[in-house]
Simulated scan of single mutants.
Amino acid sequence: MNAEVSTALAAAPPAVPPVVAPAAAAAPARSAWDRYQPWRRPLEVAFWVVLFAVNAAAGTLTAIIDIHRYGLAIPDWAPLVWETSSCATALALVPALVWFTRAVPLRFDRWRRALALHLLASVVWSVLHVVGMVAIRQAVYASLGERYDWGDWGINLLYEYLKDVRSYGYMVLWIEGYRLLLRRWQGEASVLAAPDDLPAPAQAERPERFLVRKLGKEFLVAANEVEWLQASSNYVNLRVRGRDYPLRSTMAAIEVQLDPARFARVHRSYIVNLDCVGEIEPLDSGDARITMRDGSQVPCSRRYRAALRQERRAG
């Protein structure tokens, strides 16, 4: 810098630095997991529809073959009504089964309780299945001028349950297996345990890193890189650089392990990293909307709003 420029700068009044909003973080490259998300729900729905449609078609064809083989006086349309009514009712019950498996997941540490609840649920599922399919059959038969008689309800309910409990078990195992595959694909996190050979006083009380397992690979995520945490059924999703990694825990359990000087509870389902908070927008309802530095938004309930304001001022 020459002397003239130095003199001019010295004589000029100090410039007020402009307020620059924090730049949004660069969006991570779209992975196969990201590309699957828009198609996930349609494909899941299509899977169940195709599964039950194939079962209905196969069951109908098998029944018709048996009717002709044994020379039974049953019209060919009857098996179609039987199988379609059964599969349509079972398909309608799938959303309830998916919800129940979230509420009562299969876990090794609580398998006895989960097994008992699922056995009870299988009875309820079977009864609803039978009532639904019989109602459909009676309605279709009546529209054709026929009468549908299901016979002895007691023995037939037991007969159907012996079939339904197996179908129920297969569907639960499929749902849990699919979720396990999704977690492995997405990347499942766990708290990185301290080495066993360290003395107890030297072990960290708060996790400094999380171990993420993703399709056979493992990598570490520093705790201070977690932008926020969100409760999701029996998991807590860790948001790191635009990606979610499920951690098998509860919000209450993980909250006591996090550094309170860095992380703050803002909602019953959210904990945020204070260093990643961009701005807080009050709402007329008394709640607030938090905009993170990457532009994403997190709700803040009025219960935690005052505490969050104090944390921000202290920081």
Rank of each mutant, 00 (worst) to 15 (best):
A114R: 04
L80Q: 05
A90W: 06
R113T: 13
A142N: 03
V81W: 07
W153P: 12
A63D: 13
C87E: 13
W125F: 15
Y161E: 09
L115Y: 08
R137H: 02
W111Q: 03
Y141L: 05
Y70Q: 14
R113I: 12
P95M: 00
V98N: 02
L61D: 11
L162D: 11
A121H: 05
S122I: 00
G154V: 05
D109Q: 12
T60C: 10
W125M: 03
P95L: 08
T84E: 00
A90G: 13
V81P: 00
Y161F: 15
A73D: 14
D76G: 06
D76S: 15
S86W: 11
F108P: 01
N156E: 14
L115D: 00
A78W: 10
N156D: 06
A139S: 08
C87Q: 15
P75T: 03
D152R: 01
L106R: 07
E83N: 14
C87Y: 07
R112K: 14
L157H: 08
R113E: 13
F100R: 01
R102D: 11
V127P: 05
V104M: 09
T89R: 04
R110E: 12
Y159P: 02
W150N: 11
R102K: 10
L115R: 08
W150T: 05
E146Q: 15
L80C: 12
C87N: 12
A139G: 07
S143K: 11
V98L: 15
H129E: 08
S86Y: 08
V104A: 04
E160F: 10
A139R: 12
G145S: 04
S122F: 05
W82L: 11
D109A: 13
S126D: 10
L97Q: 06
V123P: 04
A73V: 14
E146L: 13
V123M: 08
V81N: 01
I64Y: 03
A73Y: 13
R110W: 01
A103Y: 07
H118Y: 04
Y148S: 05
S126G: 06
L80R: 02
E160K: 09
R113V: 14
V131K: 09
T101A: 04
L61N: 13
L128W: 05
C87A: 15
I155F: 12
V81E: 04
Q138D: 08
L72I: 11
V98W: 03
P79N: 06
A96M: 13
V131R: 10
M133S: 01
P79S: 08
E160S: 12
V104G: 03
F108V: 07
C87L: 02
D149W: 10
W125K: 01
L61S: 15
R147Q: 12
R107T: 14
L162G: 12
L157I: 06
L91A: 07
A114M: 06
Y70R: 09
G145Q: 07
R113H: 07
Y70C: 09
V131T: 10
V131Y: 08
I65G: 04
W111M: 09
T60I: 02
I136E: 04
Y159R: 13
V124G: 12
L80Y: 08
G154L: 14
L91K: 05
G145N: 02
T60K: 03
A114P: 04
A121P: 03
V134I: 14
S122R: 00
G145H: 05
A88D: 02
G132W: 07
Y159L: 10
L157Y: 10
W150Q: 10
A121C: 09
V94L: 11
